[in-house]
Design a protein around this nucleic acid. Structure first.
Lengths: 249, 249
DNA sequence: TATAGTTGTCTATATCAATAGACAAATTTA
DNA sequence: TAAATTTGTCTATTGATATAGACAACTATA
């Protein structure tokens, strides 16, 4: 990389405190592998000079990350990296939570948080090709890998056709397995729209994030091989824990 | 949507000032179309109550957005939305800047900012299937639509094979047209990895963003239909101006 | 032409964020 | 063991952030 010197500088009077900007930088460095797992961070004085701030400001950043479980500080020894690189979550025509992360994690599963029946909103109705107001089942789920939450999703299914999918989901912990109970043995991703924003209060709680964190948001429609809409979903990924790999679509 | 009441609340002591969080919310609302273009924002007192902060705090947020050219405030009348919804940028096997945004913009083009020859870094070499250190040409470009910067990209090409592609790029303003001069009349996107982070100082300058803004980052490899690597690229999109639509090819 | 509704400006106060310096406490190294 | 290195704690000061209240200036409308 060239000309990245000044990019290491920090924005003042930006509404984002310096300690949080520095915490972000450190997270970023860990996520991209610049700070290896278990390795010691440069000493506080060095970081302070690198970012052009006071040592105490660096300490604020570090203490936030210690709180967050990303770093461990040991008096007299140094500060060490606990967390690992980002998971790489594949998105393609055959997107499946568990299989996608299989090779990168020792354990992953989906937890059903809640379910409800509601009239389809405009966008849900559009996505599923239903009339607005048609009853749909809404499943709120969280995806976890190696004990850490990585994604939070809301999925909508036509209520009439998929009555009981909430129970299936609770029992199997898998969308794929749940759909199989309704005779769907294959489904494809028809469309995905992707955006990013700051995590809101709900995201922070659901994904166990700190304020100021970023979430990647996908809005997708899954269909049968024939093109019949099955599921409309909105998923939020923690941008600091996962990256999305667009596999041959 | 259900249960979004509390999500409207704001995080204190988060390292992100309240006025900036509120500015983000308003931007978000505009981007998703919740606040229509040219429409009046709710009065300051109402916003203050909605977000649970003082009116002066809301005013700070609004004044930042006025500065940014997103809002226009008129004493006695109200505050009005100037900017429009996010552009939807398609990503698929045939991803082309200009064609992708054609229907949504009246004008778009790519500006060549700089070019240089350098030895391939680890990741560039891997992406292009070259030995590390092989000479590559690096093109720095900015994509603009309707006069606003939407993306900032670095692209790497094998220097030996694509000598002069910088000139071609400067003249044509198009990757597709430049590659055509080297006998490449079609190319496909082989892989794309997507992540999100806060904009750094370089992003802020290049994309004309405000501190605290978010960028979507894609790292991609383009290949010939035969699978021969042509281009390795890293692109940063302003998350408040574009969303990425993953198109099935 | 009042009146209500809205943005703009001013003063004051309290808390958070950042800098500065000094030294304690723990660990590693010479 | 002594010295060097590193994190932890304390005090003090400055500027940015947030709250509070009052009122001016401007616009639309009854």
């Amino acid at each position: 990389m060239i000309g990245r010197q000044e990019a290491d500088s920090i924005e003042r009077r930006s509404g984002v405190s310096l300690w949080r900007q520095i915490a972000d930088r450190i997270l970023q460095a860990i996520a991209t592998g610049d700070f290896a797992e278990n390795a010691a961070l440069p000493p506080e004085v060095v970081l302070a000079e690198r970012y052009g701030v006071n040592r105490h400001t660096v300490r604020s950043a570090i203490s936030a990350l210690v709180q967050e479980g990303v770093l461990r500080a040991e008096q007299g020894r140094g500060t060490f990296v606990l967390s690992r690189k980002r998971l790489s979550y594949p998105i393609g025509t055959r997107t499946r939570f568990s299989t996608g992360l299989q090779s990168q994690t020792s354990e992953r599963h989906i937890v059903l948080l809640s379910s409800s029946v509601e009239p389809a909103s405009q966008r849900v109705a559009e996505g599923l090709g239903l009339a607005r107001g048609t009853e749909v089942i809404r499943l709120e789920t969280r995806g976890e890998a190696d004990g850490r939450p990585v994604s939070r999703a809301a999925g909508w299914f036509e209520a009439r056709r998929f009555a009981g999918i909430d129970r299936a989901m609770a029992e199997t912990g898998s969308i794929t397995a749940s759909l199989a109970r309704f005779g769907i043995d294959d489904y494809l991703r028809q469309s995905t729209v992707l955006s990013a924003r700051h995590a809101d209060a709900a995201d922070l709680a659901d994904l166990d994030l700190q304020p100021g964190a970023i979430v990647l948001v996908t809005v997708a429609v899954n269909v049968t091989p024939d093109g019949e809409p099955l599921q409309f979903s909105e998923t939020r990924f923690s941008a600091e824990r996962v990256e999305l790999r667009l596999s041959a679509l």
